[in-house]
């Protein structure tokens, strides 16, 4: 592993993110500290995944901005939801995991012996040694998640974003994958994960962002996940209203 650059930070400055002028989350202002391990929680439709997509650059904020320190956008390691993958594509596990080395080899670079070894080792550490030639469509949900974690660790990034990493995954796999997350934290990387299971969050994640289309609370997990905050988040206005009035908070959104 190469020496890590100074750990990464994320700063949301009055950021509003959404689709077609309807914000999914608005006026987020807060900061993720370098080397912190934080969870994003909130009800369905709260804008959790949207927030991650904006950090990684897949969505552009409609208003405000997001500053990332200590990590180029292209170097961010991002775990998408499995539904966003086309798993029927007949690609061997090895080739898929090898894409984690894109920052070193790019679209054209040749693979060296050391790269082959790195990929095999990454597969070994997630408990899938010997799966190199299997194709993605033969994997179970848990195995696929392990494969994605192998790719993440090859990306060797100072900033790791996980979108629902433990959804529909059995307890043992969650434990194994959580060990990875904790190791990344110990190595000084900044980790930000969207999670559903509040028990997991309380056990493993020192910091939490609670959002419900806006920031409800952010800080140490036990101060954030209070009954008061959680019920406030639950009562957020759901979804998309076609004729919703324009927002007049603080600043107007860029069109």
């Amino acid at each position: 592993m190469t020496a890590l650059p100074a750990s990464a930070t994320i700063k949301f400055v009055n950021a509003t993110i959404g689709y077609d002028r309807h914000p999914a989350v608005h006026h987020i202002s807060t900061e993720i500290r370098a080397g912190s391990l934080s969870a994003i929680v909130g009800p369905n439709g709260a804008g959790k995944s949207t927030l991650l997509k904006a950090v990684v650059g897949l969505l552009r904020p409609m208003g405000g901005h997001i500053e990332i320190g200590g990590c180029a956008r292209r170097r961010i390691a991002y775990l998408p939801q499995q539904a966003d993958l086309e798993r029927s594509f007949p690609l061997p596990v090895f080739d898929f995991v090898a894409m984690g080395l894109w920052h070193r080899r790019g679209p054209f670079g040749g693979f060296r012996r050391a790269d082959d070894i790195a990929v095999a080792e990454a597969l070994g550490t997630v408990g899938l040694a010997g799966f190199e030639r299997r194709t993605l469509n033969t994997l179970s949900g848990g195995q696929m998640q392990r494969v994605l974690f192998a790719r993440l660790s090859l990306q060797d990034s100072p900033l790791i974003l996980l979108d629902e990493p433990f959804n529909a995954i059995d307890d043992r796999t969650v434990e194994d994958l959580m060990a990875f997350v904790l190791r990344w934290r110990d190595e000084g990387r900044t980790v930000l994960a969207v999670l559903h299971d509040l028990a997991d969050v309380r056990t493993y994640f020192p910091e939490t962002l609670l959002i419900a289309r806006r920031l409800v609370a952010h800080g140490p997990t036990r101060d954030v996940l209070t009954p008061g905050n959680l019920s406030q988040a639950r009562h957020m206005t759901e979804a998309w209203i076609d004729a919703a009035p324009y927002c007049d908070d603080h600043h107007t959104h860029a069109a």
């Binding site: 897949l58 961010i76 991002y78 086309e86």
Partner: peptide, 15 residues
């Protein structure tokens, strides 16, 4: 190949 399987990943790592 990457764009077929994981277009979001390509957009992040490949610009």
């Amino acid at each position: 190949v990457l764009e077929c399987i994981d277009p979001a990943f390509l957009r992040v790592v490949g610009g």
